[in-house]
Deep mutational scan, measured.
Amino acid sequence: KLLSSIEQACDICRLKKLKCSKEKPKCAKCLKNNWECRYSPKTKRSPLTRAHLTEVESRLERLE
């Protein structure tokens, strides 16, 4: 599967780190437990900047 097509777990399953069936409108866990089942939009991760990478590398060197 391509990364862009990976389905996201519902908010509660993601928060509780449960295996989500990803069914809509309610996944199996939410249906069974009568929880409100919501699927928040995916958040875009910002790409690493060179400055951040350099900072992490220098912190790693100090720890070694």
Rank of each mutant, 00 (worst) to 15 (best):
N34P: 02
S46C: 03
T49E: 00
L60V: 15
L63S: 00
L2F: 07
L2S: 14
R50K: 01
A9V: 08
E23H: 14
E55Q: 10
E64K: 09
K44Q: 15
K26I: 15
S40K: 04
L2V: 15
R59T: 06
P41K: 08
E64R: 07
R62S: 11
K17W: 06
K32W: 07
C27A: 03
E36L: 12
R14N: 01
K17Y: 07
K24R: 12
A9I: 07
D11E: 04
T54D: 09
E23Q: 14
K44T: 12
S40Q: 07
C13G: 01
S46H: 03
K1S: 15
E23W: 08
T49M: 06
T49W: 03
L63C: 11
T49P: 01
W35L: 14
E57K: 02
A51H: 10
Q8W: 08
C20I: 05
S4H: 12
D11L: 04
K44L: 14
H52N: 07
N33F: 11
A28E: 11
T49C: 05
L18R: 05
K44M: 12
K24G: 13
H52C: 04
E57Y: 05
L31D: 14
E64M: 13
K16P: 02
P25S: 07
D11N: 07
T43W: 03
K42Y: 15
T49A: 01
L2T: 11
L2G: 13
E7R: 08
A9C: 02
L48D: 01
S46R: 03
K16D: 00
R14K: 09
A51N: 14
C27G: 03
R50Y: 06
R45N: 01
S21I: 00
T43A: 14
C20K: 05
L18N: 14
C10E: 08
C13W: 04
K26H: 14
K1E: 04
K19G: 15
L63V: 08
E23S: 14
S40I: 06
L63Q: 02
S5C: 11
A51R: 11
K26W: 12
K24L: 10
V56N: 00
I6Y: 11
R62I: 13
C20L: 05
K26R: 15
A9E: 00
S5P: 09
N33G: 13
C30E: 03
E55D: 14
S40R: 06
K19V: 05
L48K: 06
K26N: 15
S21K: 01
I6S: 11
P47I: 02
R50N: 01
K17M: 01
K44I: 13
S40Y: 06
I6K: 08
K42H: 10
K29H: 04
E64L: 09
N33E: 10
E36I: 08
H52M: 02
A9Y: 02
A51C: 11
L60N: 09
P41G: 09
R14T: 05
L48E: 01
S5E: 12
R62L: 12
T49G: 02
